[in-house]
Design a protein around this nucleic acid. Structure first.
Length: 557
RNA sequence: UGACCUAUGGUGUAAUGGUAGCACAGCAGAUUUUGGUUCUGUCGGUCAAGGUUCGAAUCCUUGUAGGUCAACCA
């Protein structure tokens, strides 16, 4: 924030603001989000989506969704659908749904134009030879022996490439730039390759397909994209991006690069994510431990929290690794305000309140959300036998432990003060039951004589319990940097063996009518959301995140 | 041993030649019928060396460190 109270602008906002003010493109702003439909979107894409759509919104512009579908061997409609779903869920609407493949004919025409201008040629060199002749980053490349074919011959060969006369890999169309250029991308980059493959949209119409560099910029230009925003690794592509626009004399879209998102304890590469799925380390792309948008959704994350996160991580050009705790902060912050509270016990121990009548059942009234009065109240049954969390009782507690202990008093949230009189153990010495008495004058949990009881614990009435399955997730990797594994071992050795624990939980009755993705705070435990596999009578909850746990910090060291 | 990009507290990100601020994390405290929330305080930073200037995180030079680029992937 600056003195005026407005948020500081990132470098892209500054560029666009300047362009708008100067009247460039009549002040028009049009961005695009250009995924390749070959995988699922993850939190890194979410940053890019929020950026592209957010920037346009900020300056009264629009954003296109364009699928970069120039490689039929890798792409599929399955991904198109999931990508659209994820973007919508995040809360964004695109102006137009477009495909690079929509432009194949125009791209072909432009390729012919480059040939006619003697700026492109058909190369017959085998792939290996071409690689050798490209040189290295420190050595210039060598011209192809086919570099100086006549325009007519190139035109003829290119037409025959399209006609399907040649096998895959036998010929390519290359731009004629400079084989000694210090930027490898400018050493006669390939424009078209031959792939006899079925394309998810164009079918078998084409057997030559444009490369990314040739397709992307021209697609931007065709759509009259004003600001083409991509990640840092495309920085070296920008001279080529500009070269095509200049030589073809077409609409001058401009490319700008920002640093992609990295998260601690998280892998983000499509390759690694795919491996986690294929090797069965997770249950699928939408496993709640995955950093995919569908995984986060299933985990219980809200779109709002992800947008806030994208906003807080900022936009710049330096490499960065964001603390996973920032993401967790964002979801807690959001859910604290909107999730209704319930009481649930995940690791129960039975408490019998010996001075409470056998058959009596009371209705206790509890606030649904202390952060939102409009959420109202609910009734919770209370009876003689209840469950409390096993961790909330310690026979010989450490200092500053103010939960239940022998002869100690604790508050049952919203109910009564109880005192532990007797600890019953089994033959192994394990505590199986606690016998307590309640203060009959402490209805609601307030003492009548003004004495202070610091501890408050949650509980459920034993015979009014709703049994549920609870999936406790933890970070997928043990190290902040998943690649930080012992020399010579695979990154997968860093996987956290305890990233998923499935337990049985007991919830108060006011939980029966829930549907997938409903979110709750189980008091003192964390935020939980209903899984897709949940069914009436067989509810399944995913732990979205724990609550901040100051006690764990104190006692855990 | 090439070209390009980038260097601000532990992690991010502002300061656009004029008081180095904000968030997360950490620590300490207050409040609290969630050891939650909220509130307060606190720790801690301009990669280095020169130069320009009344004044440099900012401009210049030279280093240093990290990243990107040698798919018929995007």
């Amino acid at each position: 924030m600056n003195e005026a109270g407005e948020k500081a602008r990132n470098f892209l906002e500054e560029i666009i603001e300047k362009d708008v003010k100067s009247g460039k493109h009549d002040g028009r702003v049009l961005t695009r989000f250009p995924p390749e439909p070959n995988g699922y979107l993850h939190i890194g894409h979410a940053k890019s989506i929020c950026l592209n759509f957010g920037l346009a919104q900020k300056f009264g512009g629009k954003t296109n969704l364009r699928f970069d579908d120039t490689n039929p061997t890798k792409e599929d409609v399955e991904y198109v659908d999931s990508i659209k779903e994820d973007i919508k869920w995040l809360g964004f609407d695109w102006a137009e749904e477009l495909y690079a493949s929509d432009y194949f004919e125009q791209l072909y025409l432009w390729a012919q134009e480059l040939i006619k201008k003697d700026l492109a040629y058909v190369d017959d060199q085998p792939q290996e030879q071409m690689r050798l002749n490209r040189g290295t980053v420190t050595q210039p490349g060598k011209d192809s022996p086919f570099r100086n074919r006549s325009v007519d011959e190139n035109l003829d060969l290119f037409a025959r490439m399209r006609a399907g006369e040649f096998p895959d890999g036998s010929r390519v169309l290359r731009a004629k730039i400079d084989m000694a250029h210090p930027n490898m991308l400018m050493r006669d980059p390939i424009l078209y390759r031959i792939i006899h493959a079925h394309h998810h949209r164009t079918g078998d119409k084409w057997c030559i397909y444009p490369m990314y560099d040739y397709a992307h910029g021209q697609s931007d230009s065709l759509e009259k994209i004003t600001h083409s925003i991509c990640t840092l690794e495309f920085d070296v592509h920008r001279p080529l991006y500009d070269w095509f626009i200049e030589k073809l004399e077409i609409f001058p879209s401009k490319q700008y690069e920002f640093a992609r998102l990295n998260l601690t304890y998280t892998v983000m590469s499509k390759r690694k994510l795919l491996q986690l799925v294929q090797d069965g380390f997770v249950s699928g792309w939408d496993d709640p431990r995955m950093p995919t948008i569908c995984g986060l959704r299933r985990r219980g994350y809200t779109p709002e929290s992800i947008r806030t996160f994208a906003d807080r991580v900022g936009v710049a050009k330096r490499d960065n690794v964001i603390d996973l705790s920032l993401l967790e902060f964002c979801i807690r912050e959001d859910l604290n305000k909107r999730a209704e509270r319930r009481m649930a016990v995940l690791n129960p121990i039975k408490v019998v309140i010996t001075n409470y009548p056998e058959d009596k059942v009371e209705e206790i009234h509890a606030v649904n959300n202390p952060e939102d009065e409009a959420a109202g109240k609910r009734a919770i049954p209370f009876s003689r036998e209840i469950f409390i969390e096993r961790e909330d009782f310690i026979e010989d507690p450490p200092k500053k432990f103010f939960r239940l202990k022998p002869d100690g008093e604790v508050r049952l949230r919203y109910a009564y003060l109880i005192k532990c009189n007797e600890v019953i153990k089994d033959d192994n010495g394990e505590v199986v039951e606690l016998r307590c008495t309640y203060d009959t004058d402490s209805a609601g949990g307030t003492s009548s004589d003004g004495r202070k009881v610091k501890g408050v614990i949650h509980w459920v009435s034993a015979k009014h319990t709703v049994p549920v399955e609870v999936r406790l997730f933890d970070r997928l990797f043990q190290n902040e940097d998943p690649d930080d594994v012992p020399e010579g071992t695979d990154w997968k050795t860093g996987l956290n063996p305890d990233s998923l624990r499935v337990v049985k939980g007991f919830v108060e009755p006011a939980i029966k009518d829930v549907k997938p993705l409903d979110r709750f705070q189980f008091e003192r435990l964390g935020y939980f959301s209903v899984d897709y596999e949940s069914r009436p009578g067989k509810l399944v909850f995913n732990r979205t995140s724990t609550l901040k746990d100051t006690w764990a910090k104190i006692s855990g060291k």
